[in-house]
Nucleic acid binder design. Structure first.
Length: 803
RNA sequence: GCCGCUGUGGUGGAACAGGUAGACACAAGGGACUUAAAAUCCCUCGGAGGCAACUCUGUGCCGGUUCAAGUCCGGCCAGCGGUACCA
């Protein structure tokens, strides 16, 4: 019989649907293992080949964990709020809820066709009011703890989505999603105080097992820098506070620069007010992107009539405004040390300002000397002769003692702009009362249901579509009962995904986001795999929410995920990112119907290094199909014999099988699925040379089952083995049996390979050398030469040094 | 600019912890089977030379350490990702 994957896959998927063997158990005695993938956004275009890569990888891990005896939670859900659905709804005049339901149905059937061992009974949908009730609840808790606040701030405004974006959502000056231009606008927005957690978000990375590149990227994004705040008096009697990481160079501060938005500018009456004003207006007009794009050329205007006083030298120095100083970082003002900062140096050269060397070691006339390692302080009476590190300590102490400054840590991380002027998101459960201000909705009014609207489009003034719903907006203040208006902005897409993994622990709970008992048992997540693109978005956001929930006693651990790994992207056959416009998109459905889900699963894991990007190859898929055909032909007919333990392995295959068990098991743990599969292929190749016995087939199917579960179960059944392949304990191997009795050792002469010898494993060095020199070929290489030295690496090689 | 990663056959990629470079596949070529094709099976497959045994050479480039370097060190070059006037 031919390998009829269509029939087989349908059969086993039906069985899994009916018997639900992958359901995570409540109250199990077994140790738990929580394996998590990033739940998909159910887009209208259906499943993409990018999805199965992480899903299959973690499915293999989950299946192996079950075989190892764990109570595994491998859940799935849908992150379904979001713009594409809303846009589709607008264009096609359908309710986004309808679009979402359809998309989820389609995704569900596509995912089921891939044979994943998800626990479907715990499936969550972020747009379900029973779910977003708790998203809103967490927001209310944050509001209660002063972590959610409303502020008038300059925001990133996407001109195409007509919506604000978080800093994390702006990519190259454009919208992360649609690529359209992002401009700055002043808007009153809900904000989350993620900055309050900045320090802990950095520090606690030390306690989790994340791949290093993820940690590095988060640390960079949070951008912790240690320095000092220093007060500079001015000739008007005001104080300008600056932030610097180079307190040591204070004597070299020959001018100051403040941002064009600095508040003191409003207070001062300066000689060149018009000039200043023009510059301020120009700066305000520019988007952040434009401001940073003109990196090359520094601009600025001197504030005439006011001067600052260097607190250590007592010298008067000029003050400039320039847009290279950002209002939003530090204090919005800097002390400029042109000798030891490239930006200040450029500015000083352009404006003819003095450059003083305070750290010896470079040539400050030629370029700024920024080296902190080797430099020695000069021209700085308080700290001359010290190295940079010691100078920092001493000057900070001096500043503190004299009330002129204080040590300070700053972060690049900004608070999270949390409101969106869109329809398809969680309503923010806050009302605005003229008397009481912003008031939280009482918990018993949750969920605040997203009302039906006529029109899903953002209003011309840039308000949420909800703003047009007067009936819904007008309500009573929960505090004073008076007239109040509901918040019309909704939450960003990242809200629902910031805590979804907690809901999986107890998805039907009506009284809490999950019961304490369920959270205590299941959390934290043991292994979370996801895309690098979420490192500074979802991954950071959810760590923040989790820490907050930990602080208020809702979750038992300070970190949500113990381990985080990341997969590479699947590229098109042309080695380019898949996109509709390039026409290189691969549809997984077509491959499932042409080759079967097992082949697709296998190929997508065999494609290359899991952590790196890999181009799709139609031909290589065929190779994986060929492998499964070969497995089928090997095991289709029942093999007679005994298959009760490893003792039943044949002599000729014993080593290869023990090795395969070891290699496949280890490789899965370190994400080396490609070499695990290569090992299985090699084993099958051996079985084509000498036929496998019953036990050997049994082990092959057991090892194969996490990768290609359908064919493994079918062949298991055809062999009349008991139970299911997926229900077997993960096989054990004997380390001693992974080594053959006799091995080939390389023989080198002067470091060059000259031959191989076959010797018993663990042979004595002396014996190895004797065997080597008596080898005919080797003897020829060393004849008439004297052996000076021999190097033997046990079971590997022997190197003869001759003269 | 800064931070991180990566450079290995025609291609995707292997190589534990410095120890036989190219596992496992794909493509290509040859052969068997077939009326034929597909499928399957067998052989060859980094480069150069040789009838052959074999020899030389080869992991982005230059140098170093070592009995031995794809792997370690120093200096470059190229590509990818992140970040971007963050003081």
């Amino acid at each position: 019989m031919k390998y009829d994957f269509t029939r087989i896959e349908k059969k086993w998927q039906g069985k899994w649907e009916a018997e639900k063997p992958f359901t995570a158990l409540y109250g199990s005695e077994k140790p738990k293992s929580y394996i998590l993938i990033e739940f998909p956004y159910p887009s209208g275009t259906g499943l993409h080949v990018g999805h199965p890569r992480p899903f299959t990888a973690m499915d293999i891990v989950a299946r192996k964990r079950r075989m190892l005896g764990y109570n595994v939670l491998y859940p799935i859900g849908f992150d379904a709020f979001g713009l594409p659905t809303e846009n589709f709804a607008i264009q096609n005049k359908v309710h986004p809820m309808v679009v979402t339901k359809n998309n989820i149905l389609r995704f569900t059937s596509q995912l089921k066709k891939l044979g994943y061992s998800f626990d479907w009974s715990r499936c969550v949908d972020t747009t379900d009011p029973e779910y977003y009730k708790w998203t809103q609840w967490i927001f209310l808790k944050m509001f209660e703890h002063d972590l959610a606040y409303k502020a008038l701030i300059p925001v990133n405004w996407c001109t195409s989505c007509k919506c604000v974006l978080a800093n994390e959502e702006v990519v190259d000056g454009g919208c992360e999603r649609c690529g359209a231009e992002v401009v700055r606008r002043e808007k009153s927005q809900w904000m989350l105080r993620i900055t309050k957690y900045a320090q802990r978000l950095v520090d606690d990375l030390d306690d989790v097992d994340y791949v290093e590149r993820v940690k590095v990227q988060q640390r960079n994004w949070i951008g912790r820098s240690v320095g000092a705040e220093v007060d500079f008096k001015t000739t008007t009697g005001d104080t300008i506070r600056v932030f610097t990481t180079r307190q040591d160079t204070l004597y070299g501060a020959t001018y100051m620069v403040i941002s064009p938005e600095h508040s003191l500018l409003k207070k001062w009456s300066v000689e060149n007010a018009d000039e200043i004003h023009t510059y301020q207006e120009d700066a305000a007009k520019k988007s952040d992107f434009e401001r940073t794009e003109l990196v090359k050329e520094k601009t600025g205007v001197e504030v005439k009539g006011v001067r600052a006083i260097n607190p250590v030298s007592g010298k008067e120095i000029p003050i400039f405004i320039s847009d290279y100083v950002l209002a939003s970082y530090g204090t919005g003002a800097i002390m400029a040390v042109p000798g030891h900062d490239v930006r200040d140096w450029e500015f000083a050269k352009k404006f003819g300002l003095p450059i003083i060397e305070v750290v010896a070691g470079g040539d400050v006339e030629k370029e700024a000397f920024e080296d902190c390692e080797t430099g020695i302080m000069v021209n700085s009476p308080l700290i001359n002769g010290l190295n940079v590190e010691d100078a920092k300590v001493k000057i900070t102490k001096w500043l503190t003692e004299n009330g002129l400054g204080v040590e300070k840590v700053n972060f690049k991380l900004r608070d999270w702009v949390f409101s969106r002027q869109r329809y398809w998101g969680e309503p923010i459960p806050i009302v605005h009362c003229e008397k009481c201000g912003y008031v939280a909705l009482p918990e018993n009014e949750l969920p605040l249901i997203l009302p039906d609207v006529e029109n899903y489009e953002t209003t011309e003034t840039g308000e949420s579509p909800l703003a047009a719903m007067t009936e819904w907006i007008i309500t009573n203040c929960p505090k004073c009962g008076g007239f109040a208006k509901r918040e019309t902005d909704t939450m960003p897409q990242w809200a629902g995904s910031s805590w979804y993994f907690l809901r999986y622990a107890d998805p039907d709970n009506k009284n809490a986001l999950a019961s304490k008992q369920a959270l205590d048992y299941w959390t934290p997540v043991d292994w979370y795999n996801g895309g690098m693109e979420h490192t500074t978005l979802h991954l950071l956001y959810s760590r923040f929410w989790h820490k907050f929930l930990y602080d208020i006693g809702v979750v038992p651990t300070p970190e949500p995920y113990m381990k985080r790994t990341s997969h590479g992207m699947i590229l098109g056959e042309d080695n380019q990112k898949m996109s509709k416009s390039r026409g290189n998109v691969v549809n997984p459905d077509e491959y499932i119907s042409e080759f079967g889900a097992d082949t697709l699963r296998l190929y997508i894991m065999f494609i290359g290094d899991f952590e790196k990007a890999a181009p799709w190859s139609h031909n290589a898929v065929k190779g994986c199909k060929r492998f499964l055909d070969r497995v089928w032909n090997l095991a289709e007919a029942k093999i007679e014999g005994r298959a009760t333990s490893n003792e039943d392995l044949s002599k000729e295959h014993e080593t290869a099988v023990h090795r395969a068990v070891k290699k496949v098991g280890c490789d899965i743990e370190v994400l080396k699925f490609n070499t695990a599969i290569a090992t299985l292929m090699a084993l099958v190749n051996e079985f084509y040379i000498t036929k496998p016995n019953r036990m050997e087939i049994k082990l092959l199917l057991t090892l194969l089952s996490p990768f290609a579960p359908h064919i493994a179960e079918e062949l298991w059944e055809l062999q009349c083995f008991e139970g299911y392949a997926s229900g077997q304990p993960w096989p054990e191997y004997d380390e001693g049996k992974t080594i053959e009795a006799n091995i080939d050792m390389a023989v080198q002469v002067m470091g060059k390979l000259r031959g191989t010898i076959n010797v018993p494993v663990d042979s004595e060095d002396e014996f190895v050398v004797r065997t080597a020199v008596s080898d005919e070929k080797i003897a020829r290489c060393i004849e008439s030469k004297e052996i000076m030295r021999t190097i033997v690496v046990k079971n590997k090689l022997v190197n003869l040094i001759v003269k």
